[in-house]
Simulated scan of single mutants.
Amino acid sequence: MYIGIPKEIKNHEYRVGLTPASAHELVAHGHKVFVETHAGEGIGFSDDDYRAAGVEVLATADEVFEKAEMIVKVKEPQAIERARLKPHHTLFTYLHLAPDAEQTHDLIKSGATCIAYETVTDTKGGLPLLAPMSAVAGRMSIQAGAHSLEKAKGGRAVLMGGVPGVEPAKVVVIGGGVVGENAAEMAVGMGAEVVILDRNLDVLRRLAKRFDNRLKTVYSTSKALADHVASADLVVGAVLLPGAAAPKLITRELISTMKKGAVIVDVAIDQGGCAETSKATTHAEPTYIVDGIVHYCVANMPGAVARTSTMALNNATLPYALALADKGTKKALEEDKHLLNGLNVCKGRITCEDVSVALDLPYVPAEDMIKEL
């Protein structure tokens, strides 16, 4: 198979779909890999590193898309990239379609086969290709939150861990999944007072046992959520409904009850955000203030630590990229129901039910659509 790695063009996005080491694995399996020049330079992978791995370096993204059958990326394709997609392409990347009607319609129009990292599943019911970036984003949420709490950033001028004789910041984490657990780990490590809310008792039991009562676990009712958000210095939105738009748990009314200078880090922003006041920001301008509350809503948080993120992501995605290349897209999807769960758009049809519901578009089961590949 011919595999293309374009340079990411989203604001301050330095990750790359395949590292030289990952690309070399595909080459070793007999595939031809193309990379756009300078695609990995932002994180220390030179064109010569790719050449040494047996990859052909091309001058433009147009050439990469023209030559490749499978496009491996990190972030959702931007408008100029979507215009390059053709029906013969398989796109393998994060998509986050539920809150993004424009992208969805463009992918439908392209006729390409689009597999989203974030809806690929595993035998345990997890999301193995989302998990590494969720871990990074969860950890980063506390870094970003601590920085945003500084007075110069509009925050409450509160130190996360406090000092002897002065109370630490109160951190409220909404959601006990991968993002929430990693956020809690960092916040506990910094000495903050940490409360984590979830509706899954098994999750709460596991977190209580893991952290040995160094944080509070709370069953998430609307009143519990309101009480803890109102008293928080930092709120981390870590809610996820796989493939679907994030629920708006933090209402505008609830925002008005928060302490002035408190911070919301909405990690769910890729899926539309879990606060009514959230809107996507970039690393260039990561925060804004609504009703005195600092909002950090960067839609590609792991891009700030792009080398770590790229390597962690490649560890998870490489086996699937190899399966798609070795078997061909159709056979790989037919043989792996978990990879098939990643199919969001195929031959002009929506094959992810949550996306179809969120955007009110017709849905065709993935099992039916792959027959046309």
Rank of each mutant, 00 (worst) to 15 (best):
E8Q: 02
E56K: 05
I80M: 11
V33F: 00
T90N: 10
L58P: 03
R51T: 15
P99A: 09
L97V: 08
E56G: 02
V74Y: 04
A61W: 00
A61K: 09
A98G: 09
T90W: 08
V33L: 05
E41D: 13
H29Y: 02
T113E: 08
F45K: 02
E13S: 02
D106Q: 06
V74C: 12
A83P: 01
T60A: 13
L91D: 07
R51K: 15
Y50K: 01
A79I: 13
A116I: 12
I108H: 04
Q78P: 11
V35T: 06
K10W: 06
G40N: 09
L97R: 05
R15A: 05
L91W: 07
V74R: 07
E66P: 06
A39Q: 06
G54A: 05
S22W: 01
D62W: 03
I9Y: 07
F34D: 11
A23S: 13
V33Q: 02
A79N: 13
L85V: 07
L58D: 03
L58H: 01
D49R: 12
L26D: 11
R51I: 15
I43Q: 02
F45Y: 15
A39N: 07
S22N: 05
Y14D: 05
A83G: 07
G40H: 02
V72N: 06
T93L: 12
V33S: 00
F45G: 08
G44T: 01
E66R: 10
E36S: 09
E76S: 12
T113A: 09
H24C: 01
P20K: 00
D62K: 10
R51V: 15
T90H: 01
H38W: 00
L26A: 03
T113M: 13
H12T: 14
E81W: 13
E25W: 01
H12E: 15
G44K: 00
R51G: 13
E25G: 06
